[in-house]
Computed example of a mutant assay.
Amino acid sequence: MTTVLIVDDQALQRLGFSMLMEQYADMAVVGEATHGAEAVRRTADLRPDVVLMDVRMPGMDGIEATRRIVESGGNSRILVLTTFDLDEYAYAALRAGASGFLLKDAQPDELIAGIRAVAAGDAVIAPGLTRRLIDAFSDRFPGRTPDQERRLASLTQREREVLTAVASGWSNPEIAERLSLADSTVKTHVSHVLAKIGARDRVQAVIFAYDTGLVKPA
């Protein structure tokens, strides 16, 4: 069972999401919140698997709420919903620790698949869309920090190659084919990369690769 907290300041939007999830036996809406501060409190109390997070809300927005939830160290993962696929608020939310984002006009099956993917520890942003997002805001990268330098240096040459491939939008089968590796080996490398750089998922790994200059915006 995947538990979900719905965060949106629009009552009809919350109702629509709730009614959709009620149709699936493996999902349960455990609560709702109307703004960021309430989302932080309710996440701490309810510990949902996934927080379905709106961005633009009165008071504390979804970006700050995402940052606080992630920094709390809990296991709840954040799936951000936004109106535009290159919305800078969604970009900021990813930097704050969200596991991905979907458009609010996504098809119902896409939303459900996204929630399941995030709950399973995966990202839900298509690699091409991730690169478009990062390319659009590449001038905001602050440059490599000493901590990032240390984490990058901890990677083996093969792990750097795998991280570069992930950041370039390659799937695991594509990485396996292009680097002449077994699928299981690629999965192992990806897991090691995520652990060494401190990334929660592939989205955060992509951002790390751009932040450190390992991959350059197109």
Rank of each mutant, 00 (worst) to 15 (best):
L86M: 11
Y24D: 11
G169R: 12
G62A: 06
F208Q: 04
L179W: 04
K104D: 05
D8K: 10
A39G: 05
A28Q: 13
S154T: 15
A117T: 13
E71I: 08
L133G: 01
R116E: 14
A120E: 13
A98K: 06
A93Y: 02
V51M: 13
D87K: 04
P142A: 12
I134A: 05
L111I: 15
D8E: 11
V51F: 01
D8T: 05
T188D: 12
R202G: 03
K187E: 15
P48L: 04
I207L: 14
Q157D: 15
A37Y: 04
V50C: 03
D211W: 12
P142I: 06
R160F: 02
A33T: 03
T83S: 14
D54N: 08
L194D: 01
E174P: 05
T3N: 12
S76T: 05
L81T: 00
I69H: 00
A182N: 13
M19C: 00
G16S: 15
G213A: 03
D147S: 15
V118G: 07
D9R: 04
T145K: 11
L111N: 03
V203R: 03
R47K: 15
N75R: 14
T3K: 10
L155Q: 12
D147G: 12
E71Y: 09
L179C: 02
D135A: 14
R95Y: 01
Y91R: 08
Q107N: 12
L12C: 02
T2F: 07
D183T: 08
V55P: 03
V51Y: 06
L155H: 13
T66P: 02
R178Q: 10
S191H: 10
R41S: 06
V162A: 05
V124R: 00
I69F: 01
R47M: 12
L46I: 00
Y24G: 07
D139G: 04
A182W: 11
P217M: 10
S72K: 02
I78P: 01
D87H: 08
P173G: 09
K216L: 14
V70D: 06
V4R: 00
V30Y: 11
R132K: 14
L111C: 12
G97E: 07
A90F: 03
L214F: 04
F84W: 10
G198W: 05
I175H: 06
G73E: 13
I78N: 01
A106R: 08
G16H: 06
R68M: 13
P146I: 06
H189F: 14
T130I: 05
M60Y: 07
T34N: 09
I112S: 07
K104A: 01
R160H: 14
V206M: 14
R42L: 12
V162K: 01
A33P: 03
A37V: 13
M53T: 05
V166A: 09
P127G: 06
P58M: 04
D26T: 08
R131S: 01
R132P: 03
V70Y: 03
V118Y: 04
L152A: 11
E174D: 14
S184C: 00
S184N: 06
R200Y: 01
V166Y: 02
G16R: 10
R178K: 08
